[in-house]
C-alpha cells in the first residue's frame, strides 16, 4: 500500500491546441481532505476528470493506489459532480438503489446504505419523493449521496456547496468531515468558497492556467504570503485607488498593497500599529476615506495574491 492514494505524474491536457492542464504533478494522501482551488477556467474540473478516469490525459499518467488509472476497479472512486446529475422521474431511494446496482453492490447492503445515506443527509422523509419535487438543497445532498452509495475510498466533490444556503452548507461540511474522520475516506474538494476550503482541507492545491501554483496546508499558505493582518480601505473617490496604492507601498513593514474588489488591500505585520501612519499618509495626499476595516489574513487573500484579480471566464 502506497502513502499516496492518488498521484498525477506530469499530466497535460490539450484541446485543439489550448492547454487546459499543463504538467500537473501532485500526490494526494490517503485519508485527507484535499482542497483544489483555482479561478474559473484554471483547469480544476479537467484535472479532476482525468483523475477519476472520465478524460484521457494528452500526456502523463494518473495512478490510483499505485495502479495505473486504466486498470482501476471502478468502485474505488465516487464523484459528486458540480452540476446536479439526477434522474428527475425517479425517487431518492430509487436513484440510490439504481447506483448501488450499477456498482454491483449486493441488494441487502445497498438497502442498508441507502437508509444510512438518506438519514445522514436528512433525506429520510423524502425517500419516496420524485427528484423533480425536491428543493435545491435536497437535490444537492442527493447528488452527493449518489456518489457514495457504493462506499468508495476516494470521494471527489466538485463544488458541492454551490447554491446551498448557510444551514445546508454546514450540514454538508459536517458530513465531509465525517467522511474523513469516521470512514477514513480521501476527499478531493474543489470549491470557490475559500472559507470552505480553509475549514475543511488538510492541504490545498492552488492552480491557475493549468499549472500548480502552490500545494500546502491552509495555515502554511497563509504564512507564506505573510502572517499578519489585512486592512481594506474604501475611498470616496475610487479613481484615486492607483495613486493611494503607490503611496502606501512606501510605509515600512507593509508587505503588499493592491486593488481588490474596488478597495485598497494592504497586508502587513502588526498593521494596527501602522494605522495612524496610514491615515496620515492619506490625509497628506488629500484622500477621503469612505470606510476602513481590518481583519486577519485569509486563504482568499492568498488566492487573490497568487491568481490576481482579473476576471476569468
Amino acid at each position: 500500500m502506497t502513502d499516496y492514494i492518488i498521484e498525477t505524474q506530469n499530466i497535460t491536457k490539450k484541446f485543439n491546441g489550448f492547454t487546459a492542464v499543463d504538467g500537473l504533478s501532485l500526490q494526494i494522501n490517503r485519508g485527507e481532505v484535499f482542497g483544489f482551488l483555482g479561478p474559473n477556467g484554471a483547469g480544476k474540473t479537467t484535472s479532476i476528470k482525468m483523475m477519476v478516469g472520465l478524460l484521457k490525459p494528452t500526456s502523463g499518467q494518473v495512478k490510483i493506489d499505485g495502479q495505473d488509472m486504466r486498470k482501476l476497479d471502478k468502485g474505488i472512486i465516487g464523484v459528486c459532480p458540480q452540476e446536479l446529475v439526477l434522474w428527475d422521474n425517479l425517487t431518492c431511494a430509487e436513484s440510490l438503489k439504481l447506483m448501488g446496482d450499477m456498482y454491483q453492490v449486493p441488494k441487502a447492503i445497498t438497502e442498508e446504505r441507502v437508509k444510512k445515506l438518506l438519514d445522514d443527509l436528512f433525506l429520510t422523509d423524502k425517500a419516496d419523493t420524485l427528484v423533480k419535487n425536491l428543493s435545491g438543497g435536497m437535490k444537492r445532498r442527493l447528488n452527493l449521496a449518489l456518489g457514495l452509495v457504493h462506499h468508495p475510498q476516494i470521494v471527489v466533490l466538485d463544488e458541492p456547496s454551490e447554491g446551498l444556503d448557510p444551514q445546508s452548507r454546514r450540514v454538508l461540511w459536517e458530513y465531509i468531515r465525517s467522511l474523513r474522520d469516521d470512514e477514513g475516506k480521501t476527499v478531493i474538494l474543489t470549491t470557490h468558497l475559500m472559507d470552505e476550503a480553509d475549514r475543511l482541507s488538510d492541504r490545498v492545491a492552488i492552480i491557475d492556467h493549468g499549472k500548480l501554483l502552490r500545494l500546502d496546508t491552509p495555515d502554511n499558505l497563509k504564512k507564506e504570503i505573510g502572517e499578519g493582518d489585512i486592512v481594506e480601505i474604501t475611498l470616496s473617490d475610487s479613481e484615486k485607488i492607483s495613486e493611494v496604492t503607490e503611496a502606501l507601498k512606501e510605509i515600512e513593514d507593509v508587505l503588499s498593497v493592491f486593488e481588490a474588489d474596488g478597495k485598497v488591500n494592504l497586508r502587513g505585520l502588526n498593521v494596527i500599529s501602522k494605522l495612524p501612519q496610514i491615515l496620515e499618509n492619506l490625509e497628506k495626499n488629500s484622500i477621503n476615506v469612505a470606510d476602513i476595516s481590518m481583519r486577519h489574513n485569509t486563504l482568499e487573500d492568498v488566492f487573490i495574491y497568487l491568481t490576481g484579480t482579473s476576471l476569468r471566464e
Binding site: K74, P81, E83, V85, W87, M102, Y103, L146
Partner: peptide
Amino acid sequence: EQGTLARLKLSKMTGFD
C-alpha cells in the same frame, strides 16, 4: 446532456447493460 450518462459511465455498467 444531463450528465447522468457520465455518472453511469463511472460505474460498472457496460454499454450492453
